[in-house]
Design a protein around this nucleic acid. Structure first.
Lengths: 116, 116
DNA sequence: CCATTACTTCGACGACAGTCGTAGTATGGG
DNA sequence: CCCATACTACGACTGTCGTCGAAGTAATGG
């Protein structure tokens, strides 16, 4: 019987009203974090932490997820032993209209044209 | 007779095609540089380097102007002994649609609401 | 229970960005 | 000519960010 010994793992998310532009910019300035955002957009569905491609170690990736979550860019929740990630794109759009959308578009454009 | 002993001082500006998102994000992540951009927008006309308000020394401000110029965000030109600054907003809009516009709007929104 | 999987936490380290003050250079006026 | 003004260049310092590996914790399956 899967009787949880402790409370189910939860994750705290900021209300976007209390996130400021500085935090969002700092989150989006890192290329690895933009990769995460891009992959979420491209996939179009929630992704577990382990399924992202990035040129860094797992522990570093954990750090990047924390930064993204604290900046209000992603929402995270546990499903068993894996942790899922969603983009808070609509909320973000309301908080800073056009910003996330523009960054996503720019990422896609750079990935699309031959950038090597 | 104002005979120039040397060639008039010129300033180099990148073609926006050769500016990448990383550079622009790095330029816009600094709050002092966003202040510069905001003041240019608010003023609505070219401003000399000495007329900006920022909580840093003059030499630091010079550094910030360099970063903004190299990221393609501002255009600079000398008028006598002073150096003028313009926002390259239209070119930027073409290069990364919506990005600069969104950041400017976010700055204005934060400045507008009581943020202290 | 125990092992496995999936992610986190911690400390350490290296690199680099922002900052300053000082000294330097160019322009324009007396 | 010389000085004042406006900005720049340089070197030094500092704090912070991204990075890693090793050790830790939590759910799941046998």
């Amino acid at each position: 019987m899967a009787r949880p010994r402790t409370a189910p793992r939860t994750v705290d998310h900021p209300d976007l009203a209390q996130v400021d532009l500085q935090q969002v910019m700092e989150a989006l300035v890192d290329p690895v974090r933009r990769m995460v955002v891009s992959q979420l957009v491209r996939k179009g569905e929630d992704m577990s932490c382990g399924t992202f491609e990035a040129p860094v170690s797992t522990s570093t990736l954990t750090h990047h997820f924390n930064v993204l979550r604290e900046a209000g860019l992603i929402r995270q929740y546990y499903v068993g032993v894996t942790k899922m990630n969603t983009l808070r794109v609509d909320e973000m759009e309301e908080r800073f209209p056009g910003l996330l959308r523009a960054v996503i578009a720019a990422c896609a454009a750079e990935a699309g044209s031959g950038v090597d």
